[in-house]
């Protein structure tokens, strides 16, 4: 796999992260369901996953960049597993509405495990890490630029959303109203 192809795949992974963050936002806004603290932490870990691909696009593919994303995916998988276990008892309806039969935290675990597998698979391709000082620097196109900007934009939107939901105190365990809007009303 050439470095250019690896960068294209990294850009695609950023679009996937943006899609996951957009899906979480859609559930929040369309279903009027506020994310719980562990749900927010899973969003945080998805956003943290994106830093490895951003570094790969900016500085070229390196194993250490993939390692950053692997660490984020492992912590994310632990967080989502914890939330699945919280709702594993028979009769527990789970938190929030199920999408295609699974709750957001179950989809999150699937996403984090898929990320671990895909990142490990990417690390198998050594040629992407070969550096040729004589070769011109890899030019990142509009496709990769747009992916980075999109994922930064969704992270910034989450800053606003979390601030509105939690206000300046600790987030409620089972939030039903936007704390900051309630205070303003």
């Amino acid at each position: 796999m050439t470095p250019a192809r690896a960068i294209t795949l990294n850009a695609l992974s950023l679009y996937a992260v943006a899609l996951l963050l957009a899906a979480a936002f859609a559930a929040q806004l369309l279903l009027h369901e506020l994310p719980c603290p562990l749900c927010l932490l899973q969003r945080v870990m998805f956003a943290l996953l994106a830093i490895g691909p951003i570094l790969n696009i900016r500085f070229g593919p390196r194993p250490s960049h993939y390692a950053l994303s692997l660490l984020a995916a492992i912590v994310g998988a632990v967080v989502s597993t914890r939330q699945i276990l919280l709702h594993i008892l028979p009769g527990d309806p789970g938190y929030g509405t199920a999408l295609s039969g699974y709750h957001y935290y179950t989809w999150a675990l699937i996403g984090f495990v898929a990320a671990i597998v895909l990142l490990s698979a990417m690390l198998l391709f050594d040629r992407q890490f070969e550096r040729d000082d004589k070769a011109p620097q890899i030019a990142t196109g509009v496709f990769a630029h747009a992916a980075v900007l999109l994922v930064i934009a969704f992270t910034a939107l989450n800053v606003v959303s979390a601030l509105l939901e939690c206000g300046f105190g600790a987030c409620a365990d089972n939030p039903v109203v936007y704390e900051l809007l309630k205070r303003g009303a």
Partner: peptide
């Protein structure tokens, strides 16, 4: 509040 700070910190790292 901690989640706002985490999202903000991640946006800065990005």
């Amino acid at each position: 509040m901690e989640f706002t700070a985490l999202f903000l910190a991640i946006a800065i790292v990005m």
